[in-house]
Design a protein around this nucleic acid. Structure first.
Length: 357
DNA sequence: AAACAGTGCAACCGCTCTGAC
DNA sequence: TGTCAGAGCGGTTGCACTGTT
């Protein structure tokens, strides 16, 4: 048995709302409050579906709706939240006072998404679209080896990597390096299989990051950390107070090891990485983050307050108590320029894989 | 000035979730 | 436990507006 329609569609008006209809709806809600949307149209004298009334109220007529162009900080917030939450427009809207999920969704699809695409950034994963790189340039590299491909796994489309591996000549491999990489991977994997976070000694995490991330591609590499590392990322929070970037173990699970802190350089962990850093972690880890972590964000842009907090708790629930400071950028170019900095991945022109090896 | 193409956004659609009964 | 209404969500559509030829 199918669901009964929310209302009898016969004779009900659709399409754009007239000022008179808006006035009726607004007046009725002012008198009786929102809710009871099924009976509201009849009581308010509207030939509309209750659902249509609710949408008109929540997306347009509500008195706290903020109209007009999105501020730069709103745009930045949307990008950051989207990198963490995905297309959870209502969750994003909860962090943007006066903006509706519908409005944010439209703005994303018509402005931000296109801009990211122009910048070579995948708007879904927020990763640079390295999958578009010519595989032949990778395969023609004289330094192509399995160990180097392992190091590149965080940067490559898995299918491309698989293809490269299948084409890799077996003699072009240093067994020592391969063994070292494999041992390291196994160490993570074993810890994962045992259901506990691996105990990472100070500087070990840094070594891992250094191994996984080529020095000139540090920002992009948090997109798809190796599976073993992905599982562990959820157990860390990041703090940046001065010139260093500290990664704290949050001890999220009962069996997890005691808090381990390691420090890496800011260059290896740029402020704008955080959302993408979290992008590779599992939903469960995100949930844990939202429940247990006070994730502190930092911002590389000189025009943004460096002490601005980014709490995952608040991301998922509470609205901002006050709007963020406004940065005036009058033109699209200025916005794009800022956005380019915001989404900076430091991909040099004429990118050549030889440079990474 | 007219035709056409591109863009932005309000509104709709269909689905899922939740809570009351 | 099942049904239903209410509400919310993400994706899609249609149309008005703007820019270009």
């Amino acid at each position: 048995m199918g669901r009964t329609p929310c209302c009898d569609k016969n004779g009900l008006k659709k399409g754009p709302w007239t000022p008179e209809e808006d006035m009726k709806l607004t007046h009725y809600i002012q008198m009786h409050g929102p809710g009871n949307w099924r009976t509201l149209p009849k009581n308010a004298g509207l030939q509309r579906c209750g659902k249509s009334c609710r949408l008109r109220w929540t997306n347009y007529l509500r008195p706290d709706i903020k109209r007009g162009r999105f501020s730069f900080e709103e745009e930045e917030t949307i990008i950051q939240l989207h990198s963490v939450l995905g297309n959870k427009w209502s969750a994003i809207a909860a962090r943007l006072p006066g903006r509706t999920d519908n409005e944010i969704k439209n703005y994303w699809n018509t402005h931000i998404r296109k801009r990211l695409l122009r910048m070579g950034i995948d708007p879904v994963t927020h990763a640079p679209r390295l999958d578009l790189l010519d595989l032949s340039s990778l395969l023609s590299s004289p330094q192509l080896s399995l160990s180097n491909l392992v190091r590149l796994q965080t940067l490559l489309n898995p299918e491309a990597l698989r293809l490269a591996l299948s084409l890799l000549p077996s003699q072009n491999e240093n067994p020592d390096i391969l063994l070292q990489n494999k041992l390291q991977e196994n160490q993570f994997l074993n810890s994962q299989l045992q259901g506990q976070a691996p105990v990472i000694q100070p500087n070990q995490f840094e070594n891992i990051i250094n191994q996984q991330i080529p020095s000139n591609l540090t920002t992009s590499s948090f997109q798809n950390p190796p599976q073993s590392l992905q599982a562990d990322l959820g157990h860390y929070s990041i703090d940046s107070t001065n010139s260093s970037c500290q990664i704290f173990h949050n001890n999220l699970t009962p069996t997890a090891a005691a808090a381990t802190t390691t420090t890496t350089t800011r260059d290896q962990c740029l402020p704008t990485d955080l959302p993408r850093f979290c992008n590779g972690i599992s939903d469960q880890m995100r949930a844990e983050l939202s429940d247990n972590s006070s994730f502190q964000s930092f911002n590389s842009s000189s025009s943004i307050n460096n002490s601005q907090n980014f709490s995952f708790d608040s991301v998922l629930s509470t609205p901002l108590s006050s709007p963020p400071p406004v940065i005036n950028c009058s033109t699209e170019d200025e916005r794009e320029s800022f956005c380019s900095n915001l989404m900076r991945f430091e991909i040099p022109e004429g990118l050549n894989f030889d440079d990474f090896m």
